[in-house]
Design a protein around this nucleic acid. Structure first.
Lengths: 109, 109
DNA sequence: TATAAATTCACCCTTATGGGTTAATATAGT
DNA sequence: ACTATATTAACCCATAAGGGTGAATTTATA
């Protein structure tokens, strides 16, 4: 049973797919329509549409409608949380391992 | 069809689950057995075992057997790749958005 | 108004996740 | 040799992902 489903979860899930990372990279060049985003991929427009929904769920992408076109743009804020989680743990863990290596090293007879 | 299945994918998938992040956090205090890791959770030992397998698949956790006990320990290296992907894109995107804000700001009559 | 374009919706299929339970395996200890 | 412990294996179940197709919806345009 899912209790909370944090935004961090959704962000990491969204980033854990190469197609979605490519979509984000495309959007880093500026606003784009769904069809434009889909063009480089040889999967259906529909699949791309679903990937976009997952990116929206994670608040990594925003949509604004202009007539029949849906214009997508980046919203990088969620990356802050993901980045800080990973970065803080990375620092902590590397530190602990280094410390452990020291202990083992100095115990070596 | 999955073509490559990068280590970055596996790392992000592994991190995108709160149970697995909690396991990593537990392991940051040092090597531990599967049973010890499972204790704080009210899910079955078996479920925890599966989570650990996913962490191993991402090379975030290493296992060494000592008799009937399996001792798990952290291997933080994969975090480097994840961190650098996110961090570099975060920087890029925030930059672009700031730039865009500037343009819009200066165009405002 | 009729048609074309841009998207999504509603389905289908397959595979993976995350949970469970009940064996099976391997090792420790008596 | 038994028995208990630590862990995985082999299943079952439900749900979500990731892909597809074809219809529906909305808006632009001839």
């Amino acid at each position: 049973m899912i209790v909370k489903e944090s935004t961090l979860d959704q962000t990491l899930i969204a980033l854990a797919d190469p197609t979605r990372r490519a979509i984000l990279q495309h959007l880093s060049k500026g606003e784009a329509r769904v069809t434009e985003i889909a063009a480089p991929f040889d999967i259906s427009l529909n699949s791309v549409s679903k990937h976009i929904r997952i990116l929206e769920r994670a608040n990594l992408v925003r949509r604004r409608k202009k007539g029949r076109e849906h214009l997508l743009s980046l919203a990088p804020e969620p990356l802050d949380e993901a980045s800080s989680w990973i970065e803080s743990h990375r620092a902590l863990w590397s530190g602990r391992l280094a410390e452990l290596d020291n202990l083992l090293g100095s115990n070596k007879k």
